[in-house]
């Protein structure tokens, strides 16, 4: 497994982004992140589940059990209102940082 160290904030942002397109179960979140980062990030359950539980506790996500596409029971996560606001703040924050760092690298 490719190992890229994720900053904690980065993982949260990626999860929020992944869930912004609709509810997903854990494996779904992991696959969606790989997809939207073109395979640059792969998130295993060891980091994913703690993050999901932490974010749920923070009130950004809600969860419920449901049926998966191939009729397996799975727990689905979706963004709450505070979660959407958090996504907006973190996205803005990230843009600022990446611009700043890109600028710094060019200089």
């Amino acid at each position: 497994m490719k190992k890229t160290n994720l900053l904690q904030g980065t993982l949260d942002l990626l999860i929020l982004k992944a869930l912004s397109m609709g509810p997903l179960h854990g494996l779904g979140v992991s696959l969606r992140i790989r997809q939207i980062t073109n395979g640059a990030f792969e998130v295993g359950p060891g980091s994913l589940f703690p993050a999901l539980h932490r974010m749920e506790e923070a009130g950004w996500l809600s969860s419920e059990w449901g049926e998966s596409e191939n009729n397996r029971r799975a727990k689905f996560y979706q963004l709450t209102k505070p979660g959407r606001r958090q996504l907006e703040t973190e996205a803005k924050h990230w843009t600022l940082i990446s611009l700043a760092i890109a600028g710094a690298l060019k200089a």
């Binding site: 179960h25 854990g26 494996l27 359950p45 589940f49 539980h53 506790e57 059990w65 998966s68 191939n70 397996r72 029971r73 799975a74 727990k75």
Partner: peptide, 30 residues
């Protein structure tokens, strides 16, 4: 929050087990 987590611990332990098993099941399917 600590208290709530503490009280609901047994249920959540079971929940967490199911969740991880479900991950493994789904991955196996894939």
């Amino acid at each position: 929050k600590m208290w709530r987590n503490w009280i609901r611990r047994p249920k959540r332990e079971a929940d967490l087990d199911a969740e991880i098993r479900s991950w493994v099941d789904l991955r196996t399917d894939q």
